[in-house]
Write a protein that binds this DNA or RNA. Structure first.
Length: 224
DNA sequence: GCGACAG
DNA sequence: ATCTTGTCGC
């Protein structure tokens, strides 16, 4: 189960070169927006990939898929995508609806080598993606105000990768970044458009709830 | 050498 | 991520 991290770094740099940091015109009108996240079971030996497809603009769930695949790598900061992409990809290939935008729980290009899980899955599927992380991996930003909506640009390698947004008052901020085929401004705009009173935007909140088997989400665990 | 470090 | 109940604060 040991991995050649030097080789994985080379692979990340190659995939990162394919990331497109622009996209989603001002008149972009999605039919479906999806959320993706990964949970673990069986002592962490099985990855549970979850993708939930919502209809825009109501954000009603129209489909959800769960894929379980064996874990091949341990968790190492900076190499998360190699651990989670297989499960996300398996769930993605089961979808009958084609999302126009995918929000992923994790970093986009706000990553040491510009390839967080959101960017990685974005390049593999060639679909617009946005990284919605609950914690910082890298990058600098100025202190945020207390109120909901407070926002500051997140800089990585002297350039803006995304934003740090306090989506809800009295909650820790979200670390939003370009995943693939979206600009920093559209990444923030669509994340805000998907907020519904919770800290996490609906697509990611639902995928996270199902992937982590939180109370109130078991309903979606069996019925497929 | 020391600290940081998504999920 | 996961193991886990109550509890403090708004």
């Amino acid at each position: 189960m040991t991995a050649d991290y030097a080789a994985l770094k080379v692979q990340q740099l190659s995939l990162a070169a394919d990331v497109v940091g622009e996209g989603l015109s001002r008149d972009f009108s999605p039919g479906f927006i999806a959320g993706g996240d990964v949970g673990f079971e069986q002592q962490g030996t099985i990855a549970r990939g979850v993708i939930v497809v919502l209809r825009w603009p109501g954000l009603e769930i129209v489909e959800h898929r769960i894929a379980r695949v064996p874990v091949t790598l341990p968790y190492i900061p900076g190499f998360l995508s190699f651990r989670e992409c297989p499960a996300l990809l398996a769930a993605w290939q089961q979808l009958t609806h084609r999302p126009d935008l995918l929000l992923i729980d994790g970093q986009g290009i706000a990553h040491p080598r510009g390839l967080g899980v959101a960017s990685h899955i974005g390049v593999l599927t060639d679909v617009p993606t946005i990284g919605i992380a609950k914690n910082r991996l890298c990058g600098e930003y100025s202190p945020l105000e207390e109120g909901a909506g407070a926002c500051q640009p997140l800089y990585c390698h002297h350039q803006q990768a995304g934003w740090v947004l306090r989506s809800k008052i009295r909650c820790n901020p979200l670390f939003i970044s370009i995943g693939h085929r979206v600009s920093v401004d559209m990444a923030l705009f669509w994340t805000q458009q998907c907020l519904r009173g919770y800290r996490l935007p609906e697509p990611t909140r639902l995928a996270d709830g199902i992937a982590s088997r939180r109370k109130g989400f078991q309903r979606w665990l069996n019925v497929q």
